[in-house]
């Protein structure tokens, strides 16, 4: 799970955890690189097309998340369906305020998700603590203090369109990931 520099995965965020056996193909020569490039493309395509998100709503943004998943906006069109358990989800949408009491749960949920995993901070509370940044004594001031975040979506709460925009942004990021055959 931890980032292994020898495998050449990009450091940090979300960790595109490449499975080790494929990495050997880097040594196969130029033709292999083309193949590897295509494999990357294919794998990334699969990953971005099937972003199952964890049903994890703490506050107001959770309602917009539901509405984004419902009939009008229909996240299912993007292949994004909700899963109730972190083990089967790829995307942790932090929708809502994270308090200090909740903080270690968020961290645990993130750790329970299998690689590769992605995090979207949705709304002001998850971005920076939002409305509770100034006067509240018990709100985590940004979920990026707990877990690595890939995409931040501003809004309080963001419109469902903004959420979809964020997911499409994440898809773009996923497409640029190098999983296999990156220079060791």
């Amino acid at each position: 799970m931890s980032h292994d520099p020898a495998h050449g995965t990009p450091p940090g965020k979300g960790g595109a955890g490449a499975s080790a056996p494929f990495v050997a193909s880097a040594a196969l020569g130029p033709e292999a690189h083309v193949m590897v490039g295509n494999a990357d493309l294919f794998v990334n395509w699969a990953r971005k097309s099937s972003l199952w998100y964890l049903l994890f709503a703490t506050a107001c943004c959770g309602i917009e998340l539901m509405q984004a998943g419902a009939s009008r906006y229909d996240l299912d069109r993007f292949g994004a369906v909700f899963r109730a358990t972190p083990r089967q989800s790829d995307l942790l949408l932090v929708a809502g305020t994270i308090t200090h009491k909740m903080a270690d749960r968020v961290k645990r949920l993130y750790e329970q998700m299998p690689e590769p995993k992605y995090v979207i901070a949705m709304g002001s509370c998850a971005n920076t603590g939002g409305p509770f940044y100034k006067d509240s004594y018990c709100v985590v001031k940004g979920v990026d203090l707990l877990i690595p975040v890939d995409v931040y979506i501003p809004g309080c709460p963001p419109r469902p369109e903004a959420l979809i925009d964020g997911i499409m942004k994440l898809q773009k990021i996923i497409m640029q990931r190098k999983n296999y055959g990156a220079k060791a």
């Binding site: 703490t58 506050a59 809502g96 305020t97 308090t99 009491k101 909740m102 749960r105 509770f132 006067d135 509240s136 004594y137 018990c138 709100v139």
Partner: peptide, 8 residues
């Protein structure tokens, strides 16, 4: 788990 201190 969602105590945000609204009254404060």
């Amino acid at each position: 788990y969602l105590h945000r201190g609204l009254e404060k």
